[in-house]
Design a protein around this nucleic acid. Structure first.
Lengths: 333, 333
DNA sequence: TTATGAATTGTAAGCACTTACAAGTATTTT
DNA sequence: AAAATACTTGTAAGTGCTTACAATTCATAA
């Protein structure tokens, strides 16, 4: 079943069939309808490969992420996939882990599949060492590269970012206003967005004349129990803190567990603020105050920008979206 | 840059280049190496579309799931994607929601992309009404269909299942042995695996001579707060229960919150068992006893079976994997 | 050395589509 | 009614690869 079958049955040439397939205006309504009918009757579907060969590309976008099972990225993938499909694009997903080698390998793979653009989801995608990002710059030489919650400057690179820095700035400010003086900051990784969050926290402290102490800023694996244990250790070591801010809800859940274990009351003795406003936020008692990083908005904006790029609109290479502070019960405000 | 460039530079015919591309044995080592070198020098990557046109297919598998942001499915997708890639296959992901219309539409889309097989992830994929599954039977007429944690009989349909029934049977039995007599069962949906879980629970009760009471079996949206609220309502209505089993950890977290809200102690006054042993399980205090449904094993088995189908091995159309009861702190045993 | 078969390589015909260009038809203008 | 123009349609040449079959080369046995 191919284009010839349709053309034969409709009594037209394959060129005409191809034209209606591609929505060309150079077909009379009569023939168009005729061909459409025949296609329907025959249940004809054009062969993607032949189409791709002829057109040099097919409507698909490559999505790369470090780990699709991470809740944050899982949501991103969901919104991206749905959004792209809404615009008539398919997506190919590649999970790279954090290995640079994989990233390059999968980039080549996607390139060989002639994807029309690359979407890199998650701040983990941008390495801290500039040379780790060379492959992205290189990729951008061939096709548009969209970063979801990551930042990198370069031609043909478009970033959609959450204003993490303002968000943690505001959140920390609220903690301070509500009486907290020793705010611990826990983060999972040194990504671009991770740094932004940290800076916001630091901004707030120095803005209020509080000292920014290195031992109040701690890295921790993205794991509930690891966070709890780290806090227990800090507690035992005599460090005083009356609030914990985290770069991820996972760590904040660990903080709640720490408070339970040490019988510190939340929020009276310990305030806690998470990040991402994920489904973890309502799992704890009391429920987590958390910063909503607007993943859905990030994804839809990314896709809109991409569509803009495709049809030659003048789109900004960088869009920032404001985060929301979702107040629940682990803070006094 | 195409196969002609390579053939010209290597001084061989395009057929020879194609042969080394496809690992044909009918090439002398000398020429093979020569061609390989030239390819490398030129940075040549074969055109997927031309390849697909010639071969009629390309190494890709269609994955369908209802919602890739669901943690359980997100993990499934991760393991499937990684596993397939390990066997040299790409995947195309389609999230269908629960609309039958979407399922059919996306099936057609995947078919038009000439995928080599279809993997349907999640028990939600199998409708309770037989006619809702017709499209799967139809799909299986054209290509192998793999069900991950779903069951449907039919030619060319292969199921990998978790033995949910035995798992809940054992778990409920443990609860009974530990003194529970009024075990509530909360489930999210009436899927095949959902029914299996429920039956295991019922098996255990009747096996121990306990009555199976309809009002102890409740459906609840997959949502922490909805579960908590349902339990509060049941509590207020005077229903007595000393244990809660759920078809998903989400609901079990809600049960923990219910216990906190009503100051019932866990596990002394209330035992709780979740399902899936997800990351939620360690979020609560105390941590959830949960049934591990072995999603990774399910996925790798699915892929191994599929590879078996591809190379004509005699593979079972149904594989069952035993679940694990992970004991934590919400049960007395 | 020559015949024989095996191993290697090349030629050319697909695969199913797109599209530039040519050709044909309908419509408008003069 | 003829000429000019616009609209439709068809022809045929790509697009880059695979592979059956033919041709060539090579190694082995007679």
């Amino acid at each position: 079943m191919n284009i010839y079958d349709v053309s034969r049955k409709a009594g037209v040439s394959i060129a005409t069939v191809s034209r209606v397939l591609n929505g060309s205006p150079n077909v009379s309504d009569r023939t168009r309808n005729l061909v459409l009918e025949v296609m329907d009757e025959l249940g004809y579907t054009p062969n993607v490969f032949a189409r791709g060969l002829g057109l040099g590309t097919i409507q698909t976008i490559g999505i790369m992420c470090s780990d699709s099972s991470d809740p944050y990225l899982a949501h991103a993938i969901y919104y991206l996939e749905q959004g792209l499909r809404g615009h008539g694009y398919d997506s190919i997903l590649c999970c790279t882990g954090n290995s640079l080698e994989n990233k390059q390998k999968y980039f080549n793979l996607l390139r060989s599949k002639k994807v029309d653009a690359l979407i890199l989801a998650g701040s983990k995608f941008i390495g801290m060492k500039p040379q780790d990002n060379d492959y992205i710059i290189e990729a951008a030489g061939e096709l548009p590269v969209m970063l979801v919650n990551g930042f990198l400057e370069g031609r043909n690179i478009y970033c959609t970012l959450c204003d993490d820095r303002s968000a943690t700035h505001e959140a920390a400010g609220r903690l301070i206003s509500s009486g907290c003086r020793n705010i611990l900051y826990l983060y999972t990784s040194q990504s671009y967005s991770g740094l932004g969050k940290l800076h916001g926290y630091q901004d707030a402290l120095s803005g209020c004349g509080l000292p920014v102490r290195e031992d109040y800023i701690r890295q921790c694996p993205k794991d509930v129990l690891a966070a709890r244990d780290l806090l227990m250790k800090l507690h035992d070591s005599g460090l005083c803190f009356d609030a914990v801010m985290t770069s991820d809800d996972t760590l904040a859940v660990g903080a709640v567990k720490y408070a339970h274990a040490t019988k510190r009351s939340i929020p009276d003795e310990l305030s806690i603020i998470g990040y991402n406003n994920s489904s973890y936020a309502v799992c704890t008692d009391p429920e987590l105050t958390s910063i909503d990083s607007k993943i859905e908005a990030l994804c839809t904006t990314t896709i809109n920008t991409l569509m803009g790029v495709f049809n030659g609109s003048n789109v900004p290479s960088r869009t920032t979206i404001a985060a929301d502070l979702i107040k629940r019960a682990t803070t006094k405000f």
